[in-house]
């Protein structure tokens, strides 16, 4: 009973935190002054003539919703990857998915013969998919019995570096587009509008529901592949489905706001620390914490160099990189 009580109170605490941070995000560090009360009035008694109300509903709200959903997507993608590979260091940004998706998008948005051939989110998914496939092949996780954690991460680092180099080369070749691509590579929510949100939410929502549905089989996979197979899990199907969901989650998030790293690495660890190993519980919790973290990073991204904006991805890297080092040092790879 105490376990249930603890989970419920922690969950309520998280939801309350999410609500407060969302509210704060809607008004904090705005160049045109917006107050907390303005935010509430914008919802309850909207006035077309009040600039503060317009800012909240036209600029801040789509940005906030995008931040929430991006956080949920990246955090659950990380949780799924850690579950599939049983590797605590697995995350979209570590295993090359982010860099691959970035390369895919850079290719379709700069190269003339590819321009417009694919939507950017499809390009991001394809790029991420190819990069991850290469990492998996190099890290040899599909081979019977092989599960070498260090090797997988090294493969991820190598492929990420390769993709990043290629992305830079593409950007240099097409200078007109360079500035846009660079902002986007750093991952910023500053340009998220209702248009962004509308293109983003359907895929994101479907993938998030899909992620919840595979939670029970991720649980059984934690017992190792032999045991999972013995317990009636179709390994190939689970892995393919899980991988597809990761690509959809990361592809959707990255095509909306650019390459944001470390959320997928950090958040699943926090969720497990708070709620234990059960994916049925820690996946939805990871979504909430991810949403919270990205929204917080976005709010801070306006504060650091106010009135200029710092990319939220840079803020997250400041928190994420030390955490990654901590994880590497804590575990014997």
């Amino acid at each position: 009973m105490s376990r249930l009580f603890r989970s419920v109170s922690l969950g309520l605490f998280l939801c309350l935190g999410l609500l407060l941070i969302s509210w704060w995000n809607l008004f904090a560090w705005s160049v045109v002054p917006v107050s907390g009360a303005d935010v509430l009035h914008a919802f309850t008694s909207f006035n077309d003539q009040t600039i503060a109300h317009r800012i909240v509903l036209d600029l801040r709200l789509p940005r906030l919703l995008t931040a929430l959903l991006v956080g949920a997507c990246l955090a659950s993608a990380g949780a799924i990857m850690q579950g599939l590979t049983r590797n605590p260091l697995a995350a979209p940004s570590v295993l090359g998915v982010n860099a691959g998706a970035a390369l895919g998008m850079a290719l379709v948005s700069t190269l003339p013969f590819l321009y417009g051939a694919l939507s950017t989110s499809i390009a991001a998914m394809l790029g991420g998919g190819v990069a991850w496939l290469l990492v998996m092949l190099l890290g040899s996780t599909w081979r019977v019995g092989a599960n070498e954690h260090g090797r997988l991460v090294l493969a991820g680092v190598a492929i990420s570096a390769l993709c990043a180099a290629l992305t830079k080369a593409v950007v240099i070749m097409e200078e007109d587009q360079a500035a846009g691509v660079m902002t986007w590579l750093a991952g910023s929510l500053a340009d998220a509008r209702w248009q962004t949100w509308q293109a983003f939410w359907p895929v994101a929502l479907i993938s998030l529901i899909g992620a919840l549905l595979i939670a029970p089989s991720l649980n059984v996979l934690q017992l190792g592949e032999d045991n999972a197979r013995n317990l009636g899990i179709n390994l190939l199907r689970s892995k393919l489905l899980g991988s597809l969901l990761v690509l959809m989650l990361v592809g959707a998030a990255i095509s909306a706001v650019g390459s944001i790293g470390f959320v997928g690495l950090i958040v699943p660890h926090i969720a497990r620390l708070m709620f234990g190993q059960d994916f049925r519980l820690c996946l939805p919790v990871a979504m909430i914490i991810g949403a919270l973290l990205v929204t917080l990073a976005d709010t801070l991204s306006r504060a650091v160099t106010y009135p200029m904006e710092t990319p939220a991805g840079a803020i997250l890297a400041l928190i994420g990189a030390p955490f990654f080092i901590y994880l590497v040092r804590k575990r014997t790879l």
Binding site: Q222, L223, G224, Q277
Partner: peptide, 22 residues
């Protein structure tokens, strides 16, 4: 199986319960 992984953070009763997953 002969060699088993050591699952982290899983309690004995929860592990045994996975036997019921089919």
């Amino acid at each position: 199986p002969q060699t088993q992984p050591i699952p982290e953070g899983i309690k004995v009763k929860d592990l045994v319960a996975y036997g019921r997953s089919p």
